[in-house]
Amino acid sequence: MKVAIINYGMGNLGSVRRSLENLDADVIIAEHPKQLLDANRVILPGVGAFGEGMKKLCSEGWIESLQVQVIEQGKPLLGICLGMQMLSSLSEENGLNKGLNFIPGKVLRLDQLGCCFRLPHVGWNDVNYQENVSLFKKIPQQTDFYFVHSYAFIADDPANIIATSAYDISVTAAVRKNHIFGTQFHPEKSSKAGRQILKNFIEFTVC
């Protein structure tokens, strides 16, 4: 199994790479969009600001490559944290910025959504997921995962929200549309349960 992690200069790729290597995946740190050609799975990681992230994906040619490899050829994609938020249509972080629009919806600051708790939402929070979602296979309901974010993904179609977590309001914890997945939490930093998420993603097969 070849898993490409997109390196667009945002965030900590090391821990994602190491987690996948521990699962015996063949990991490619993709520095160039052409490297997605060889991969069976694609991971879009990321910490940082939405606008900066999209700017880098755009200027380095990743958007076209993702369009071909993920949308046309159907390679499973997992967006993590900012990587998940960029799957959306639009974000309001530092002004309006367009996303990849792979899962229609928008990204808003948690306090705009009515959350009155301290921000960022940082730490371990328990996740409730829809039954029979392959990404959460073998993971008990209400398992804690590590979150660190101030913005949240509101999917237009609620069916695309496959998991939530409570932080004053209901926060989108994971999304899915067909073979495209996203987690707001960091599986690579969520210890054993996070490792299971990555394993489930690697083992996911398109029906």
């Binding site: 910490v47 600001a49 960022p120 940082v122 660190v148 974010h149």
Partner: peptide
């Protein structure tokens, strides 16, 4: 915070 996000 601008470059890497406040969470960092």
């Amino acid at each position: 915070a601008y470059q890497f996000g406040v969470q960092c």
